[in-house]
Amino acid sequence: MLAKRIIPCLDVLNGKVVKGVNFINLKEVGDPVEHGAFYSEQGADELVYLDITATHEKRKLLSALVQRIAGNINIPFTVGGGVNQIQDADALLSAGADKISVNSAAVMNPPLIDQIARSFGSQFLVVAIDAKNVNGKWVVHRNGGRIATDRELFEWASEVWMRGAGEILFTSMDHDGVKTGYACKELAMLSEALPIPVIASGGAGAPEHFLDAFTLGKADAALAASVFHYKEITIPELKKYLQQNKVSVRI
């Protein structure tokens, strides 16, 4: 039976893993490969590396890092935060990334989704969507949530699927960092409307939240960062809890 996936997310700045709240007060905490290997040994099903470097050196650094990750980690990993054009996707694929995640660049240039999917296959492309509820309407935001767009969550999700995205990573900005659970209602709507896997993101604070994301939210995978970084929840404990609650997980 296909297992529900648990995915730790690592933020990377200048080649190092960083921790911080909403990209403020970032603290360097170590090597991306070592952190990834630790999560992999703990039973993570996949890893997401989100590169938040904003310098000219970025592309070269990221390519070298991805090669090192691919060489050392034996589970799938996704790289996000650096893909603005098809050449970026190509470079990450050549470096050994299993998947890439595209966010702002997809909103600003939707045909990029078609291009990447046609060139490298849908399985290679995760489209990340950040959205927040504004007067009852789920408004898609870009640039790390700083800029509101004229896109609505469900319409945009449907469009990115039709353009060839292989998975959708939905972050509810209202739930992100609050640790009171994922946006399960919206997740369920996305999961039921779309014939591709949906990854829940934003809001994990306790094992019950993961359970809710999979049962109420019908998510195929759940992503979290800080609860794993700060060891508030360990992956073995979480998977045991999910298994006891009849969620199929890889143990």
Partner: peptide, 10 residues
């Protein structure tokens, strides 16, 4: 089902 079949299976 959802396509692709993506993830860990037994």
């Amino acid at each position: 089902g959802k396509i692709p079949h993506m993830g860990w299976n037994t």
